[in-house]
Amino acid sequence: MSAPRVALFATCLTDTLYPETGKAVVRLLTRLGCDVDFPLAQTCCGQMHYNTGYHDHARPLARDYAATFEGYDHVVAPSGSCGAMVREIHPSLCGTSPAVERTYELSEFLVDVLGVTDVGAYFPHRVTYHPTCHSLRMLGVGDKPLSLLRAVKGLELVELPQAEQCCGFGGTFALKNAETSTAMLADKMRCVQDTGAQVLSAGDNSCLMHIGGGLSRLRTGVRTVHLAEILASTEEEPWASATR
């Protein structure tokens, strides 16, 4: 059986601001036997435009997505939010397409398509996990990310209180309703700090940028690390702390 051809949909945020996450996905999927490609024609799924009410701007981006990712066995995004935009919203903008139907959020792809929970990772830190709203409620990833984390060697997983409460990011919500967003962030940070974890992980760099930005402002010392980077980390090639 030949290796599945997997396209990485990095998302514009990760591509631009968090390249380490993209590299981690490539490393992880290659290790698990996938033939990974990054089609350079990709840009953005259109979520910011769509969620802010600019549906006409989102539509061509959705069309571009379908064309860019046509012809791969699977498309994998290190984001529940962009994954949900593609799978749940793109069909309403420009109809469905093979690319849309084969798009997965990373934890879904690992557990449902590759059928693995133990990816051979090593991450000797105390970690808590924030299940992001769109991965949880739009994609329904359930406890797949947690089952992946539980199998990581050396990782101590601590439960996040009120985990399912939104962190307050919400895309342009964080700017348009900045004060409400910040109030939600404050509660989320309190819950994170209550766990005593050294690392907060999630499947979305957008939410991590928001929570991590707050944790950094308060000098809490808690690091935010994308799920992909934890899963890519091994004893031979351990996670190197890049600043976030």
Partner: peptide, 16 residues
């Protein structure tokens, strides 16, 4: 209320 990340020297696509 939050720090913003600096844009890294090299984007993912540049690395790729």
């Amino acid at each position: 209320s939050r720090d913003a990340p600096a844009v890294p020297k090299e984007s993912f696509r540049a690395w790729w």
